[in-house]
């Protein structure tokens, strides 16, 4: 049954989602730490900005991205002048788009984790002689690892399920920027239902599998931390 089905889009999807998740966790951590610390109007404004992708149609986000990072756009032209290949219709472009699109799914759990943790454990660690980086790895990270798990899962899953933004900035180049969600759409358009069935079924089973593993790990962490 798998014969004749191009599985390349699944591989592209996996790559985009992995890069995006790693980037979101690494860059999202300082952003979420900062958001958890600020207060008042400033906090409301920046929280709203981070949450924007939740409410904007993906095509709107994709459109602005295209305008910004396209060869004619401010960032795109700067990028080109530095001698890099264009961001649009490339893997890097897809990752940038996915990063912004999935931002709230990574930031919100992390921010809530840091808020719940409060400043006390960090103050304690500081008086015990731990510097800022040491405090993060020895106290903050172990105490918020469940939030990290949730953030990474949601960011990954949300990126896998992405469609509109990718279509706007990545096009649909097989083997390069053609992700599974778009490939399935193409198959359906071309009345290739059997190929669409195979890809969809693989997506369904894999998603269920990943989520089940994550939830069981999460449960175990919960039991251990009490």
């Amino acid at each position: 049954m798998l014969a004749g089905v191009d599985l390349q889009p699944l591989w592209v999807t996996l790559q985009v989602a992995s890069y995006t998740t790693v980037l979101l966790i690494v860059l999202g951590t300082p952003l979420a730490l900062w958001l958890a610390r600020i207060q008042g109007m400033k906090k409301a404004l920046f929280e709203a900005m981070v949450a924007l992708p939740l409410v904007l149609p993906p095509t709107v986000l994709g459109f602005y991205l295209l305008v910004t990072i396209g060869p004619e756009g401010p960032i795109g032209s700067l990028w080109a002048s530095l001698g890099f290949s264009p961001l649009t219709f490339s893997m890097s472009g897809l990752v940038i788009g996915s990063f912004l699109y999935s931002l709230p799914f990574a930031i919100q759990p992390l921010m809530h984790g840091f808020e719940q943790l409060g400043k006390r454990p960090i103050e304690v660690a500081a008086t015990l002689g731990a510097g800022p980086i040491d405090r993060f790895f020895s106290v903050i990270l172990p105490l918020t690892r469940r939030h990290y798990l949730v953030a990474a899962t949601l960011a990954f899953a949300h990126t896998v399920g992405e469609f509109g933004v990718i279509l706007m900035i990545g096009g649909n180049i097989p083997g390069v920027t053609q992700v599974a969600s778009i490939a399935i759409y193409d198959h359906v358009e071309a009345m290739e239902y059997s190929q669409a069935h195979v890809l969809s079924a693989i997506m369904l089973v894999m998603s269920l599998l990943v989520l089940t593993i994550v939830y069981s790990v999460n449960r175990r962490m919960e039991v251990k931390i009490g």
């Binding site: 006390r120 304690v124 008086t127 015990l128 931390i225």
Partner: peptide, 30 residues
Amino acid sequence: LAIHKRKLGYVFQEASLFVHLNVEDNLRYG
């Protein structure tokens, strides 16, 4: 001056132990 450079000990109203560490690892942290 950064707190971790001041060499001060601070005991809070609530014990504020690190829940991810056992008693000995809490004691050995500082």
